[in-house]
Design a protein around this nucleic acid. Structure first.
Lengths: 149, 149
DNA sequence: TTACGTGCAAAGCATTTGCCTCCCT
DNA sequence: AGGGAGGCAAATGCTTTGCACGTAA
């Protein structure tokens, strides 16, 4: 049994990419981060313990990890893109309109089956999905009813 | 039977918003546009027949239409957000990685049922979905095999 | 008549790029 | 030793904002 961090590091080395301290720090963080963080959140976290790291390096590292399939990117125009390195297979998410929280979600449609259906019902050759649900998380529901009452 | 254009215009008037020539032109276009266009695509189209329209007005009009529920927004960081005013109920889309084409897609899971499942399987109060599939459209598949061969 | 809407230009963010330096292998 | 990687700062692209003027109701 290997950790997600070890998996990513192994892939990088196998493909001949250099393991710099900055890359190690970034990979270590995103391999464990359940927030589906933004570039800035990762930058801030790396920066705390490794102040000689720039935003550009985080962007470039993310680009590399996307290319080799070890990082999922979810584009947003407001607040910055969100990333998932913990789980790179197809799965669904819920997002909170109030606080921005993003969590994994299990849905009955075994995750591959939606892609299969998309292939069957279109002329596209579909290879990946983006399945997200939006609303209010438990905390923000409480806050809203408090504000209304 | 009313057209989508008439529906949106009626909603705007009922809510007391002014119907300016610019708004009419914008609404007329997006009510029929099957491309899931970007702000810039709508701006260019309006501009052809109505040169005294600015990008800012398109942005402001979209903001208004989103607020009253007559326009769906799909955020992208690359290439700009995409919009759908033809069909504002929950439905799925396929997008082409090659040319950017975005089309409606019918999937078995009656579209409300995914939201219901998301509610059942999370502590969120889910109100809307974003269900998208990515791959290559028929045209881009041909071009790719031609390039490879 | 007057508050709402428009248009212009400047500002705001997220992201990308160029270029030089550094250091992993 | 050499080339991939990092850091800085400038540039890019989409979107928002402030303000003065025009116009629908």
């Amino acid at each position: 049994m290997t950790t997600r961090y070890e998996d990513i590091e192994t892939t990088l080395r196998e493909r001949g990419f250099r393991m710099t301290p900055q890359r190690l720090a970034i990979v270590r963080i995103i391999a464990e981060d359940v927030r589906h963080p933004t570039v800035d959140q990762v930058f801030e976290t790396v920066h705390e313990t490794f102040p000689t790291t720039s935003r550009a390096t985080v962007y470039k590292t993310f680009e590399l990890l996307k290319d080799i399939g070890e990082l999922l990117e979810f584009e947003f125009s407001e607040g910055g893109n969100r990333y998932d390195a913990k789980r790179v297979g197809p799965h669904a998410h819920v997002l909170c309109d109030g606080c921005g929280r993003m969590e994994d979600l299990e849905i009955d449609a075994a995750d591959g089956s939606l892609v299969a259906q998309a292939n069957a019902n279109s002329s596209f050759h579909v290879t990946r999905q983006r399945v997200e649900f939006y609303g209010l998380c438990a905390k923000c529901q409480v806050q809203e009813s408090a504000a209304a009452g």
